[in-house]
Design a protein around this nucleic acid. Structure first.
Lengths: 196, 196
DNA sequence: GTCTATATACCGATAGAC
DNA sequence: GTCTATCGGTATATAGAC
């Protein structure tokens, strides 16, 4: 079973958008092969089975994608600037990569134990560890993990609900723009609703 | 094609947990039939095809499920009480019904145009219209729809990430409890982080 | 309205020639 | 490393007896 050859990578990059759009069961080995330009049988020279191909594709997609965070929360900034930078990073990362977001969403609903552990290791753990200390430094009112989940949901739901929101009253395209989301989320996070 | 007979309902109720757990493609007509106690062929006396069975099951699941909101935001309460009541309703509704939440999550990732419209009509539009006026009454800083999405994500992500969070540092089971989520989310919404 | 039997299609994976 | 050919399994859906 060869590794990291040129076709190996080509296969992964052909498979990713398919899995993102149609899910694991919605993509046939023949579909991936056709996209690459080979036959389904040839795929088995690179991957032992479909499961493995999917897993390697996931790993490839999430690897290095979330490495931009290091140093971004540098302490030379004010807490408010650091929060804004963090939210902006989050929005840009998942806002610009539709495939990454779709894969993540599918993995969270399918909740396969082994794949979730890989996701934690590659995506969430690095972000979480980097952010947790920062969160602790600005508030002691909230459980750090719960706050992390809240912020994640606050950001991600603006993307997850995108196809849905278009059908609601008061929708306008400006609500999809990254700057608007960043502004709205940070403002809400910093000030709250100030309810009497 | 008969309608609303006893077996018709039995089929829907047998199908729902299956679709919620394994998705549309992950459930075979045979699986549903076995759960009901009939053969797959007999299903076609009640539904023209699998697509229709799935759609009717979704409709059945979401119908009347979200009707508890009416009057809950009664204006006899203070804004803060109304906000808390709304968050509590949201958490209880989707926190206690794993099937409903899984179905919703799958629909949002698959994003089928026709089914999304049904979801809007049955679930989100009623909630949104009820809540929008309330949101407007307590703040003019935020776009109502964006604020609605933010609050939804704030609540839902504590459930969506449940299988994931167990694997993160600082996890403890108390973070899954409804009261803790309600307390955390309302507190965060009302006060914000108060970042300097 | 349910059954058995079956048509038809698709999928993952393998065998073997080149 | 890719191809053609194919096996074995499983899926939706239909036909027809009861």
């Amino acid at each position: 079973m060869p590794k990291q050859t040129k076709t190996y990578i080509k296969i992964l990059e052909a498979a990713l958008p398919l899995f993102a759009a149609f899910g694991y069961k919605g993509v046939a080995m023949r579909d991936i092969a056709n996209t690459v330009g080979i036959t389904a049988a040839a795929l088995y020279n690179h991957f032992p089975n479909k499961d493995n191909l999917y897993f390697k594709a996931l790993e490839y997609a999430f690897d290095a994608q979330v490495s931009g965070l290091a140093g971004m929360l540098a302490k030379t900034q004010t807490p408010r600037q650091r929060l804004t930078a963090f939210i902006a990073f989050w929005v840009e990362t998942f806002g610009s990569d539709v495939i990454l977001r779709a894969l993540l969403q599918r993995e969270m609903t399918d909740a396969d134990e082994v794949r979730l552990r890989m996701l934690i290791q590659h995506v969430f753990q690095p972000i979480y560890l980097e952010v947790e200390e920062f969160l602790r430094s600005i508030t002691s009112r909230h459980d750090p993990l719960m706050l992390f989940v809240s912020i994640a949901g606050l950001v991600m739901y603006h993307f997850e609900t995108a196809p849905l929101r278009k059908l609601l009253p008061n929708f306008h395209p400006g609500q999809d723009e990254h700057d608007a989301i960043i502004e709205h989320v940070t403002s809400l996070l910093i000030h709250g609703l100030d309810v009497p």
